[in-house]
Structures are given as C-alpha cells and as structure tokens.
Design a protein around this nucleic acid. Structure first.
Lengths: 192, 192, 192, 192
DNA sequence: TATGAATGAGGTTTCATTCAT
DNA sequence: CATGAATGAAACCTCATTCAT
C-alpha cells in the first residue's frame, strides 16, 4: 500500500503477461500484436517477457494449454460415453459453459485461423474439433447430417461474436446459441 | 511475336498479380505474405507491383471488389423482393453459387478476420453480412431464429473448408451445405 | 562533380560492402563486427546491406568465393601434376603469391577458426587444406614428414602475421617464409 | 552423506564452472558460448556464475592463469639459461609436455585469436610467445632462421589439431610434432 | 551459496514503400 | 511498364549483468 512508485513485483508477472497478451491477441490479432506492445502495457521490458516465455509463440501456447484444459477433459469424458442423444446434449451443454469461460481465446482462434494453422496450437485445436465432431455425429451419417454437426460446432464458436451487434443480454444469447446447436445435433441424430 | 524468349506477358500483369496474391493470401494469411514473395513468384520486382497497385492493401481491395460484385448485385436484388420464404431460398441458392466462384477469397476472409477487421474491406464485408442477415431474418424474429439465420450464413462460409477432411465430391458437399442452410432459414421463417 | 553531398552511389555498393566488411572482420573478428558498424562506415542503412546480401554470413561467403578462386585453380592444377619435388615447389611458390593477394581474408581465417568452423566457408577451407596437403605429402610418408608438410602450410598462413613485430620489409619476409616452407617440404620429399 | 538427492556438489562449483566453460569455449568459441549455456549444463542459474566470477572474461582469465602457470615457470627458467642448443631443446621438450596438459585451452587460444586479442589474456599470451621466441632464436639470426623459430612454435600449437584427421595414436603424433620443431630450431641454431 | 526476476543494449533480419532511370 | 537501389521503422530475440532475498 501507499504510493511506492515501483511495487516489488510479486510473483504474478507471468500471469499478467498472459492476461495482457490474450487481450491484445484477441483484439488485434497475433501478428499485429508486438512484444513491445505487451511489454509497454505491463511497464516491463521486452527482455522480461523472455524471462518468462521462450518465444512469442510460447505465450500463446501457454494460454491455450491453461484455458482449454476443461475442454480436453470434457472430450475425453464424452468419447467414453454411449453415442446417445443424451450424451451429445450433455457435451454441448458443458462445452457451452467451457466456451464462455475462455471466450477471448476462442474469439482469437476463430479470427486468426490463418495464423494459427502454422502454429503448434493450430494442430491441437484441429484435433479437438475432430474429436468433438466424432462425438456428435453418428458413424455413417449422411453428408447432410455431418454438415449439421459441423454447423452446430461453428455456431457455438462464432455465434457469440456474430451476435455482438444484436441487442440482448449475453446469457440469453448463449442460451439461444446452445438451443440452435442442440437442435441441429438432434436432427442429425434422428436422421441417421 | 518475334523472338521473345519470355512468355507472352501481355498487359495481363495486373491480373497475374491478383491471382498470385489471392493464392498466397488465402494459403498463408495476409500478414505472412510479403510483397517480396508475390514478386518472386511472378519473376518481377517488388517495384513492379507498385506500378499496378498503390499499396499492399490495395491489392486486397481490388480482389475484393472484383470478386464480390455478383454478391452485391444479389443483395441489392434480394433487398427489394418481398420477405417471403421463396425469396430467401432463392437468395441462398444464388449465394451458394457466387461463393463457389470466389472460394479462395472467402476462405481468406474467414481465416483472417482479425486482420481484415482493421482494413477497409473488413467494413464492406461486415455490411454485406448484415444486409444478408436482414434479408434472411424476419423483422421481429426471436433470438433463437436470429441465431438460425446467422448460423445458416456461417455454415455456407465455413462449411466447405470444414468439410475438407470428410470424403466426398465437392459438388455434393456444396449441395449438402446449401440444404442445411435452407433448412435453418426455413425453420426461422416458420418459427416467427 | 563538385561537392554534391550525396553522390549518386553508382553500382559499386556491393563491392564497397565487401571491402569494409573484410577490413572489419579481419580487424575485430566476425562476431564482434556488427552490420550496424559496416553500414555506418559506408553511410548506408543496414537494410541496404540486405539488398546486396541475404545474410551476414553471405557477405563472408562472397568474400571467400571471390578471393580464393586463384587458389582453387592452383590446387586443381597441382592435383594433376606428377608428385615431383618440382611440382610441390611450384605450388608453394604460386600459393605464396596468391596468399599475399588475399592476406586480410587469410588473416581472418587464421584468427577466427572457431567461428568459421560452423560456417559454410569453414568446410570449403578445410577441404582446400586437405587437398593441398595431399599434393605436398608423399602417399605413405612417415608421421614426421606429414607433420613437416602441415607445418609448411601453417607457416605460410600464419607466418606473415606472426612476423609483424619483427622489423624488415614485407616482401623479404614473404620470401623467408616461402623458403622455410620449401625447405620443410623438400625434407619431407627426400625423407620418404 | 545424509539423504541428499543431488550429487554431492561440495565446494567445487568454481572448478566445475571452469571445466564446463573451457569445454564450451574450446568447442564453440568464446563469443558463441553464452553464460546461459554454461549455467544450464551445470544445472545452476546464471546468477550463480556471478557469485564465483565477476564477469565472463573473468572465467577465461582464471582458466588461463590456472593452466599456464607451468609455462610461466618454464619460460622464466629458460630465460636464465645459456642460449645453447641444449637449453632450447630442453625448453621445447618441456613445453610440449605442458601443452598436452592444457590442450583445450591452447586449442581455444589458437582458434579464437581475433577475440582474444582484445581481451587481457591476449596480451599475456602474446608476451609469452615473444618470450619463448627470444629463447629459441639467436640474437642476430637472419630472417629465415627467425621464421624457423616461429614455425616451430606454430607447429607445436597447431600441429595436434591439424593432425586430427590423420590416423595414428596421439602420443606418437606428439612426438612427431616435437621432433619437427626440434629440427627447425636446430637448423636455426646451426645456421646462425 | 545460490536463486528469481528483471534490465538495457544491442544483434540480425524483414517489411512496405519510394524514386530516379 | 518495369527495375535497381535504398530507406526507416519495426520485428523477434539474446546477452552480460545486477540485486534483493
């Protein structure tokens, strides 16, 4: 407390870097966000960033690892359940929750696909998508129903951001998005 | 004619720049594609690009303008039709055609949203999306149906790329995507 | 003519970069010479260096290629001659001439072996040494005579610099160095 | 003793730093070896190095001082002896022994002359060379014989490394090198 | 004896852009 | 219609070093 100009910088710097980085990455994109910018916001030198992370990409990787753990667990759980509609719905419900806990990261992923594709997190992300897709779709579903499942996924990822201009409270939007996704998956499940 | 060793290279350089640029932009992203790279592929100097285009962004703008004209016309037409289901379906059908004629550009738009948002084409793109959305949705549609319309749009844009790993012939995929989009819009129309 | 501050910079920049680089590399070493330093001496920006050379190492490579051509030819010639003492002496004589035409480069090579070993020119240099060694030594020479040949080579490379503190005219020093080298090789030739 | 998981790590850290540093310096060169690298190999932090040595250069200086003491003594002894051939030969013999006890350091000195020249050890090394040279050569020896003495020195320093590719057992190589050096000095002594 | 956290200076490289020819 | 030469800004990253604990 008090007005010491230079507080002793406790052990939270790593976390603060992640916070600022995620904010900037998701606002401006990965390439357009320079380490200088991140450092300046934190009133730290660039070299300090390199004390905590080996490379720029490493910052992103760390964010991804920290924020997508719940999804990993969810997918692992889902993959072991029976392929029933109930399972699928439960997965969607929980996925929706997880998403809103890591919204900025997913906005980032959505809007920086070209960049992310070349990065190691791109692979991880793609694998997750495929795993989810395999949970939602029936083994020999016709093309149309496969599209429905993909569409459900996209709707959940992009829906929130696309609805930013639409008036209404965020929680209601989330429910609406979830409902449409559930619907699509239900149709695909029935149509098999 | 005469004894030119080089390829004919008529007044088509501008076009060739656009072709290569679109290919690279959509493959690697806008920021990761340098003018040097474009120039090298064309076996031309960077300075030559500046004879044909004022800036890097200008290349992108020109691509956008040239390739989205059909959509502009479609939207203008659609906005004047009655808000019937038939109109909406007709718009979706024609939009699907237009999309497959400019697939790389749309892939680019989809995968570089963060970049594009700051550029002038970002605005134009967003306006188009909103215009389309206004054609598809009923004026006072409930949130869920609005999501369905947004979802239909996203499905069309992203569907093709998302289905790259799924086996099947492209034209059939396109039809499947269109069918799901039509379905969503029909539900939204009926549910109003 | 006259005192224009900024002469039009003719097509000699590449050459001037090489000159300055060689001077600095040989004075201070490769790692301790920064591109900033080279650029400043030439009153040019760092980026200009990159117009003419792809990397820092490339500058060195170009120097090596340009300055060691005569040696390559000499070695190629020597390899085809009979293994007589006359051949060996002729090679030494001509090598001594070639060396004094590229003295700064060889001083650099001598004094930056650790650095150069990791660089592509290191390999080229080593190969040349081995080729020369093979010309000078008899196929089954005893170890001592092999050492004499190596020693002759080293004497020629390092001799000039090591004698900097000794008083005397450079041309005479060169002759003395050559004489000792010739002697060593003659002993080795006779001793086989 | 006790249940320490780590290696004993007594008060020998200073020594271990020197060992690793010498290994890396001689393998990669002084500039290319960073303190981070040394610290990592020792599983210690960079700051720990600064507890034992004031600067990076200090590590090198300490190595030099510790490893060249025998030579200092040898040179001091030699300077007081009569300038006879026997003295010279004795000096060479003992120098050869001393060299093989500190081979990596001398390899380092040989291969990093450019770097070392600016450092304090450079001076010390040069002074030693001159002192040795003064022992080996006759006061008014003709240029050629001076070259022979320099050459003898170079042969001993560089010979071992240059012969790495030649087959044969190290101890025999050392003897061959010594023999050639003795020969050169004998010629110089006789020729005066 | 050592570490954790940070700094300041500087390194090489890349980029979009300009302009005289 | 195009090139050759260059620039200024900025990028990512590494290094030796410091200091409170």
């Amino acid at each position: 407390m008090g007005s010491s100009k230079q507080q002793p910088r406790r052990g939270n710097t790593r976390q603060r870097i992640q916070d600022v980085a995620l904010e900037l990455f998701s606002e401006q994109g990965y390439e357009k966000t320079s380490l200088r910018e991140i450092a300046e916001r934190l009133e730290v030198t660039k070299a300090a960033l390199y004390y905590h992370f080996k490379t720029k990409e490493d910052i992103l990787v760390s964010l991804f690892e920290d924020l997508t753990r719940p999804m990993d667990e969810l997918i692992a759980w889902g993959a072991e359940q029976p392929h029933s509609l109930e399972t699928k719905q439960e997965v969607l419900r929980r996925y929706s929750d997880a998403l809103s806990g890591a919204a900025p990261l997913f906005r980032f992923m959505q809007e920086n696909q070209a960049t992310v594709r070349e990065l190691s997190v791109g692979d991880a992300f793609k694998k997750r998508m495929i795993a989810l897709f395999d949970i939602l779709k029936e083994p020999d579903a016709p093309l149309t129903d496969q599209v429905r499942c993909v569409s459900a996924l996209f709707t959940m990822h992009a829906g929130m951001f696309a609805l930013q201009d639409v008036e209404g409270d965020p929680e209601e939007k989330r429910k609406a998005v979830l409902e449409v996704a559930m619907d699509l998956v239900a149709q695909a499940h029935g149509g098999a």
